[in-house]
Simulated scan of single mutants.
Amino acid sequence: MADRSPQIRATAMPTDLNPYGGVFGGWLMSQMALGAGSLASRHGKGKAVVVSATDFAFPGAMQVGDELSVYCDIAATGNTSFTITAEAIARERNGEAETRVAQGTFKFVLLDEDNRPRAVNAAALSAND
């Protein structure tokens, strides 16, 4: 795993399981959306809402008690939006083994105080890099 910081970390609990005993994919997607939203709001300096979620894959399995780390990167910047890739990595509860359990792409639109799309401030973006 590359030396990078996760946007969020969470532990999978029994309520996060699907009927087959694995972690529910919807829970993984929601954690990824939270991490991506945090990045969009921080870089956009304000309210950012998800408008699409695409390209999801679930290459690995996660068990109850495993720790999930969500890593996000801004893949593209539009006039009023960010496209953010998210990668979910599970670490086994009692060890160091890691598995990529999900990946996907989110698009966020920045909103003003009237909940209307607002422009991405290029000067603020370069200050965050």
Rank of each mutant, 00 (worst) to 15 (best):
S5Y: 08
S5K: 03
S5W: 13
P6R: 11
P6W: 12
I8Q: 00
T11F: 01
D16W: 06
D16E: 10
D16P: 00
N18Q: 09
G21F: 07
W27G: 00
L28E: 08
L28T: 12
S30E: 10
L34Q: 12
A36S: 12
G37R: 03
L39K: 09
L39P: 01
L39N: 05
S41H: 10
R42P: 00
R42A: 09
K45Q: 14
G46H: 10
D55A: 04
P59A: 01
G60A: 14
A61D: 04
A61S: 11
Q63F: 07
Q63V: 11
G65W: 15
E67L: 14
L68T: 10
V70Q: 03
C72E: 09
D73L: 08
D73I: 11
I74E: 02
A76F: 10
A76P: 03
T77M: 11
F82N: 05
F82W: 06
T83H: 03
T83D: 08
A86M: 13
A90C: 01
R93D: 00
N94E: 09
G95A: 06
E98C: 00
E98V: 02
T99P: 00
T105I: 04
F106W: 01
K107R: 11
F108M: 03
V109S: 05
D112H: 02
D112M: 08
D112P: 04
E113L: 05
D114C: 02
N115K: 15
R116N: 05
P117Y: 08
A119S: 12
V120T: 10
V120G: 05
N121H: 12
N121Q: 14
A122H: 11
A124F: 14
L125M: 15
S126I: 14
A127F: 05
D129H: 07
D129K: 13
